[in-house]
Simulated scan of single mutants.
Amino acid sequence: MKHRRIGHAAGPHLDALKNQGFCLVENIIPAAMVEGLASDLGDSFAATPVSDGPFYGADTVRFGGLLNRSPFAALFIQHPLILEIVENILGPWCDNIQLNLTQAIEIRPGAEQQVPHRDQDMWPVSRMLPSDHEAEYLVNVMWPFTPYAPENGSTMLWPGSHRRRAEDLIDPDEAVSLEIDPGSALLFLGSTLHCGGANGTMAARRGMIVSYSLGWLKPYEIQSLVYPPEKARHFSPDLARLVGYQVHRPNLGNVEGRCPSELLGERQHSGAVDALGDEQIALIEAFRSQARS
């Protein structure tokens, strides 16, 4: 497990995440990039049917696979400051992070408030451990395409709820809903209670959520199916690793015993190649030392 160096710009945001469970990072993407991404996704917003079910909400539109839909998506997903913050939060619990989800979201006029929830609860282990366990499983990043405000369904968050993990519902009066302009990003922990707000305006609220999780978890969106090798080999090596073309020690996520990154290139090994953690190497060395004595 790794601890990353904390840069000057990331420090205050990390403090806010650890203290409140969320933070707002303002004006870090140029407006032209937001407009380019939103424009590229416009046809998908128009063509995608509304969601179904009590969690997603009947007056919302959601779709994923955003790296397939716009070249601008990678600029958001790989934003250096965002990755630095995320890696510092998740780094103590994994060797490497992975892309868990990219999802465009439209909350239409008249949409009701979503049920409050913690995104980490998609993994049952998060509820099996003691409520004071400090491990974080993911970090969400909300990128607005249109201005977010309490009136149009801006994300509602419960400050400090990441330290109250045993409480599924907390007094609504304790929630906050922020005004967020396009070009800024809202980050919140997977352990933070939150929900989409009600849209009481006459205009749709559009944006994108990108989430990153521990590299050894099964992601919400199966990235290797969304971005198969014939697609991922055109990504940069760093982006390919982020979407899952990497082994997580010990030997998790391999293909025929080899790192899945080999599916993207010409190099091939004749057999399986270990990718072991420090604990496994120490155990092997102890075993061999004992056998020699």
Rank of each mutant, 00 (worst) to 15 (best):
P124D: 13
S184Y: 03
S131R: 13
Q246H: 15
C195A: 15
A16I: 06
E174S: 14
N199R: 08
R206M: 09
E279L: 09
Y245T: 09
G21K: 08
N251D: 15
D181L: 14
P12L: 12
P228C: 13
A286W: 10
G21M: 02
N251P: 09
T60E: 03
S161D: 12
S224L: 15
Q290S: 13
S177G: 01
I209Q: 04
Q120F: 10
I281D: 05
L157R: 10
A135F: 06
D95Q: 15
G190C: 13
L99F: 12
P150W: 08
A282R: 15
I180D: 05
G277M: 07
T146W: 01
H248P: 01
T201R: 12
L189N: 03
R62Y: 05
V243S: 07
D52G: 01
L81E: 05
G36V: 05
G65M: 06
G207L: 01
N68L: 06
L169M: 11
L24V: 01
I29F: 10
R288A: 08
R205M: 03
L283V: 07
R233W: 09
M122K: 14
F45W: 05
V61R: 11
E106Y: 00
F72E: 02
C259P: 04
L24N: 01
M128F: 13
G277F: 02
V25P: 01
G110Q: 11
I97A: 02
D181Y: 07
M156E: 00
N140A: 14
H79L: 01
G200L: 03
P172R: 13
E262I: 08
D274I: 03
I85M: 07
D181E: 15
G65A: 15
W158D: 01
V25R: 09
V226C: 11
K218F: 10
E87V: 07
I170W: 06
V115I: 15
G57E: 02
W93R: 08
F72R: 07
A286F: 06
P12E: 08
Q114P: 07
A135G: 11
D238L: 10
D59T: 07
A9R: 12
L187H: 00
V86M: 10
E174D: 12
R258L: 10
A275T: 11
R165E: 02
A32Q: 08
D168K: 15
A104Y: 08
P229F: 13
Q103Y: 01
T48I: 04
I222H: 14
A46F: 06
P150I: 02
Q113K: 15
H162E: 08
A282C: 05
G257W: 12
S44T: 01
A46N: 11
F145N: 01
